[in-house]
Design a protein around this nucleic acid. Structure first.
Length: 590
RNA sequence: GGCCCCGUAGCUCAGUGGAUAGAGCAGCUACCUUCUAAGUAGCCGGUCGCAGGUUCGAUUCCUGCCGGGGUCGCCA
């Protein structure tokens, strides 16, 4: 880059801004590795596009060692970088983890699950959890210290509904007695509640009440509301039931998280945080940041293009926003070095977070500008939106089971695994099924709404997690036969093969490896695993093309063979790390 | 209605100012006595929602419109 600027200065005695200078990978139909578009410089060079490009090209060739040759097509300067540069890079890629970037010295908190405890986890949670988990690992690989946190919405009317229903209709059913997973059991009573509630509403409507009145007066709802009040008053019996049922849910969630392969450094319980924020809001009121209207505390965001919002009710109680204000403040107190806080929450809460961040800025917290809402789109089914009340949700445990079974069916059909134990097979199919699922959810831009078709969407072939795993396993097989591990990739002498000229297949793979750190960096900057996911696919796809036509172990020239083994090892190493960043495992064989 | 997000191949998605817009799936074809065929190569498939504008150059940026979704509680 500086070389180009220098070239420009000398050739045309005129400076060029760094941002006007764009390098792009040369399109495969032309010869070259990097391409510079010279159109932006025509005014300064006062020459036509071809002459400008040629002049720069000549200069670079004469002055920059790694520039081997160039060609000019229209306004595009295609530069061929010397083989030596690529082989040197490959040695580097073999000797260290190129996907572990320089430490930034920053500590980042990522919140990536916030389930309610009244029902089991579903597909929507899975997108949230895989996304946040992957972003955490990408940030870590990009040199940050990461704190992963979960918020558990363990209190409120929703859990009281399950509790009331269990009390009324449960006959003491327990996870142990029914064989139901704890979260499923509690979820079952949430559904029971809804059924009973609807029945009661219907009865009331038939007795002449309006629907609105009936929906407010249904006895079982009143019961749940009364239970919430008792909970807030610390009623021992209610609290004991609450603890018992939440305990079941946590057991269930933990089993689900374990299978998902995700983990948290710290848990926040809403029952502990919901009291936070009140004093902060009152402080803001004193400072004149907020105002009093009819006894309630409001914030006015009309200048920011939003509207007014209540922060404390007239009776002095909190709203959702209040506790989020308090929780954010608390987190920065608990983690003094924290420089960034990321909330992985669905895009239906875009407005909420916009308001939250503005409020914290108004309260004068310097870190308020470092808050980020990692907003992701909903997951739709072919039938439309998932609705828990209509029973159209895709259950997380069921889906994982289905995916793993799918992997098993395919794997056993291929019958390449007859010599391994049943336990090893189970572990392998678990890895494959989970990767298929995770990759499917992570390969698309997080902020976009996506479609999940359980029947057809999840493939084990093509642009998928298992495709990547398969490539890795094939390389491992090669390395095994060559007696090398992926960590002892290229001996420096291996790159002698380069003197013979890199094959285009080799060059393509190395270039993709070379781009990988930049892609990872971009993934971390945009908090978007999809670019990493897609680049990993590009890499292994290119490797597969190489593998198909270029002999590795069968190559007779020992130097070339070693070089290709080293190339393969470097791909395996980067692939494994990239997959780790996406929360997926890679199998030794498949 | 106000505000926000999205609209690219039959389907699912890449592509955030550059060349003739790319993958996967689906359909068709070729390649396993050769390093794992969960693979590779090829064919088929496009008014980048529509209309203007900015620019040497727009799928990409701006405006308007159309279509889809979200959100606008002293709910969470």
């Amino acid at each position: 880059m500086p070389a180009i600027q220098q070239a420009f200065q000398q050739l045309f005695s005129s400076a060029v801004e760094a941002k006007a200078l764009t390098f792009q990978p040369t399109r495969p139909e032309f010869e070259g590795d990097v391409t510079i578009n010279v159109f932006p410089f025509l005014k300064a060079s006062k020459l036509g596009p071809e002459q400008t490009a040629t002049a720069i090209g000549e200069h670079l060739k004469a002055n920059v060692a790694i520039v081997d040759r160039f060609n000019v097509i229209k306004g595009f300067l295609n530069i061929v970088i010397a083989d030596r540069y690529w082989t040197d890079f490959l040695v580097e890629a073999g000797s260290r983890d190129i996907l572990q970037l320089e430490p930034t010295g920053k500590k980042v908190m990522v919140e990536y699950a916030s389930p309610n405890t009244n029902k089991p986890l579903h597909l929507g949670h899975m997108r949230n959890i895989f996304l946040g988990h992957s972003v955490s690992r990408i940030l870590q690989s990009a040199g940050n210290e990461v704190v992963k946190v979960q918020v558990i919405n363990d209190r409120g009317i929703h859990i009281c509904k399950s509790m009331v229903a269990w009390q009324n209709f449960g006959n003491g059913e327990m996870p142990e007695s029914s064989g139901l997973k704890g979260d499923k059991l509690v979820g079952k009573y949430y559904v029971e509640f809804d059924k009973a509630y609807k029945g009661e509403v219907e009865v009331l409507v038939n007795s002449g009440k309006t629907k609105e009145v009936a929906e407010k007066e249904a006895p079982i709802l009143r019961e749940a509301q009364a239970m919430l009040l008792k909970w807030e008053a610390n009623d021992p019996e209610v609290r004991a039931l609450w603890q018992k049922m939440n305990g079941w849910v946590y057991d269930g969630f933990n089993a689900t998280y374990a299978r998902m392969g995700v983990e948290f450094d710290k848990l926040y319980y809403e029952s502990q945080t919901y009291v936070l924020g009140k004093n902060d809001v009152l402080d803001g009121l004193k400072k004149g940041v907020f105002y009093d209207k009819d006894g309630a505390v409001w914030v006015d965001n009309t200048k920011e293009g939003l509207d007014e919002k209540v922060l404390l009710r007239r009776d002095g109680t909190s709203v959702y926003m209040t506790q989020d204000i308090g929780t954010a403040i608390k987190r920065f107190e608990e983690f003094p070095g924290l420089s960034k806080l990321i909330y992985t929450v669905g895009n239906e809460q875009d407005y909420h977070f916009k308001v939250l961040f503005i409020i914290l800025k108004k309260l004068g917290f310097p870190w308020a500008s470092e808050l980020f809402h990692l907003s992701y789109g909903m997951v739709d089914l072919p039938s439309g939106k998932m609705k828990s009340r209509e029973g159209t949700v895709v259950d997380a445990d069921d889906l994982m089971e289905e995916m793993v079974n799918e992997a098993r069916t395919t794997g056993e059909q291929l019958s390449k695994l007859d010599d391994i134990t049943e336990a090893e097979k189970s572990r392998l199919f678990e890895q494959i099924g989970m990767a298929a699922l995770k990759y499917f959810l992570l390969k698309v831009d997080p902020k976009k709404r996506m479609l999940f078709d359980p029947a057809a969407s999840i493939d084990l072939q093509g642009h998928t997690g298992p495709f990547i795993q398969y490539t890795y396993a094939r390389i491992k097989s090669l390395l095994g036969k060559a007696g090398r591990s992926e960590d002892q990739t290229i001996r420096p002498s291996d790159n002698v093969a380069a003197d013979d000229g890199l094959l285009t297949e080799e060059r393509t793979v190395i270039k993709l490896l070379h781009q990988f750190p930049a892609v990872l960096h971009e993934s971390a900057t945009h908090l978007d695993p999809s670019s990493t996911a897609n680049h990993t696919y590009e890499l292994v796809k290119a490797y597969n093309s190489f593998y198909q036509v270029v002999p590795v172990l069968k190559e007779e020239d020992a130097a070339k063979r070693d070089f290709r083994v080293g190339l393969s090892a470097a791909v395996a190493k980067a692939t494994k790390k990239a997959m780790w960043c996406l929360g997926m495992e890679v199998p030794e064989r498949m």
